[in-house]
Design a protein around this nucleic acid. Sequence first.
DNA 1: CTATAAATGCAAATGACTGGCAATAAGGAG
DNA 2: CTCCTTATTGCCAGTCATTTGCATTTATAG
Lengths: 144, 144
Amino acid sequence: MTLDNLLKTLHTAKCRMTSQRRTIIDVLLANENTLLSADHLLKLCQQKNPDINTTTVYRNLELLDALKLMYTVNIDRNTMGYKLVCHDYHHHHMICLICGKMEAIEYCPISPDLIDQATARGFSITNHNLELYGYCHTCHTDLL
Amino acid sequence: MTLDNLLKTLHTAKCRMTSQRRTIIDVLLANENTLLSADHLLKLCQQKNPDINTTTVYRNLELLDALKLMYTVNIDRNTMGYKLVCHDYHHHHMICLICGKMEAIEYCPISPDLIDQATARGFSITNHNLELYGYCHTCHTDLL
DNA sequence: CTATAAATGCAAATGACTGGCAATAAGGAG
DNA sequence: CTCCTTATTGCCAGTCATTTGCATTTATAG
Ligand SMILES: [Mn+2]
Ligand SMILES: [Mn+2]
Ligand SMILES: [Zn+2]
Ligand SMILES: [Zn+2]
């Protein structure tokens, strides 16, 4: 996701650019490969701009989500993780259990065969999710 | 998951059998292929035994989870889904988006190759998740 | 039967997130 | 540049699933 792309989409949607929104976008771009909780995002934003509010963060995440610019997934039992979408084609990710770093896997191992098996058992499959979990290089090294 | 198995595990863990716990277990067994929300489970339990409390349901789910007897996953943004584990070997599921019905897929498409790719990119993978989503036969028919 | 520890019920707390509303400010029209 | 419309923000209170504290009840080993 590029800044230009973001700005263009926002402009098309008649959204205005505020200092708060700009900060949020900058932080999201600087962490485009990491799943952030709303709270973590807020803290990162506040380092650049103390004038930023929890509600504003949530509302901007909601906006970006509505514009299909966000990838959101549960981090744990009760917290969502947010990051900007990376590609517009179907793909999967590997995710670091410690720092939330996500790397795209440009490959989908779901075969038509598997879908057929499901169909044969009465399920009509519409989508799927697949994530590999583990430790990124940095966090793995830190563990030792 | 069999009743015997459950009772044995609970006994080994020095847990006691109360009428509430027994109701919860019975309902979970009767719905062993369906993801239930805590609230849905509560309502089903109350049909058999009005003397049952939200907190008790949560505490029993927590207990069964600690004993590795539960499969828990987010149903949506803010609700967990619970069901008893089915098999003790690695497998995946297809899940009905409407009723929560889950069917096991005795097959894992994650190749050593994919893990190797991840390793080559600095990730050490420890686990993964994969679910196929769609509509079960019953719900698909109802949609038409 | 009794002692002990587990389990329950209730009410209050938590914590992520949302919604109402008045105040602020972006940015296009003129 | 100025003005006007309307998006955006901040504050604060509300929501909702889930958790916790604590007094009370109950299961079960011995
Ligand atoms: Mn795929
Ligand atoms: Mn697998
Ligand atoms: Zn990491
Ligand atoms: Zn269904």
